[in-house]
């Protein structure tokens, strides 16, 4: 694998994770538990779709086949998506969405913090911009984790169940392969083992504050780096890509 191919893959991983998480959150639009939270979730969704747009635009240039960000988002099949498994998990109840978002926010927070120092100027600049957004997302979901965890018996039970069910998808966040190895050597990508350490500390600390139990080590799902997904991604893409697939090249 050469550097160009690796960088293209790397951009897809970053962009797809934001895109799919953004698409999931946007499903809450008009269905939020209260008006204020409905707007908060869709704000976060828009931030994430914006991140994806910028990185996919860059990915298209790196790939050099004339693909735009829209081509890459709407015309790739499921197996070519490189989003982390966590992002594609269905919304569930509100506690589940918040728990999923919190785990992802902590990940993005330390990820972008590290990627700011990338030798790739585009990735570095995009990370700096995105980090400001993610800092707010994390503040928002952290508060909700505390509120739900340390709230009523029912909210505590629901958010604990969410963390337990999501836990097996958190190993996939930090898997590294030859793409990472090659780009890490070039100073372009980051060491996910370092991010993992920071992520684990941060999550453990907050769960404790929220009176929640850190799940015990369990079997970890893997596969997103190679495009192997849970069954949920296909359904999500069917909805997201429907319009472009049905009416090719249709313009808004």
């Amino acid at each position: 694998m050469d550097k160009q191919k690796a960088l293209f893959q790397y951009c897809l991983r970053l962009a797809d994770s934001s895109l799919i998480m953004g698409q999931r959150l946007s499903e809450w639009c008009g269905h939020g538990p209260v008006l204020e939270e409905d707007i908060a979730l869709t704000n976060i969704a828009l931030d994430l779709v914006g991140q994806a747009t910028a990185i996919l635009n860059y990915a298209g240039k790196v790939e050099g086949k004339g693909h735009t960000e829209d081509d890459l988002a709407f015309l790739r099949p499921e197996r070519e998506f490189r989003n982390v498994l966590l992002a594609e998990q269905p919304n569930g109840d509100y506690a589940f969405t918040i728990a999923r978002q919190f785990l992802f926010d902590v990940y993005q927070y330390y990820y972008y913090q590290s990627l700011q120092k990338s030798k790739d100027e585009t990735l570095s600049a995009l990370s700096e911009k995105s980090l400001k957004e993610v800092t707010y997302h994390l503040r928002h979901t952290s508060q909700w984790m505390l509120r739900l965890g340390d709230g009523t018996p029912e909210s505590h039970e629901r958010v604990q169940r969410a963390i337990n069910e999501l836990w097996m998808f958190t190993g996939d966040l930090f898997d590294m392969d030859e793409v990472d190895a090659l780009l890490l050597k070039e100073g372009v990508s980051i060491d996910l083992k370092e991010v993992k350490g920071k992520w684990e500390n941060h999550v453990a600390e907050l769960l404790e504050k929220a009176t929640l139990q850190l799940p015990v080590q369990t079997f970890m799902q893997a596969g997103s780096r190679a495009g192997k997904h849970t069954e949920h991604l296909g359904f999500l893409l069917a909805e997201m890509q429907y319009l472009q697939r049905t009416y090719p090249d249709v313009k808004w």
């Binding site: 008006l35 204020e36 707007i39 707010y136 509120r147």
Partner: peptide
């Protein structure tokens, strides 16, 4: 707006 505590009110105000 509606909120159950100060921090939530501040964040909701930011978002709305």
């Amino acid at each position: 707006l509606h909120a159950s505590d100060e921090e939530m009110a501040l964040q909701n105000a930011r978002d709305v």
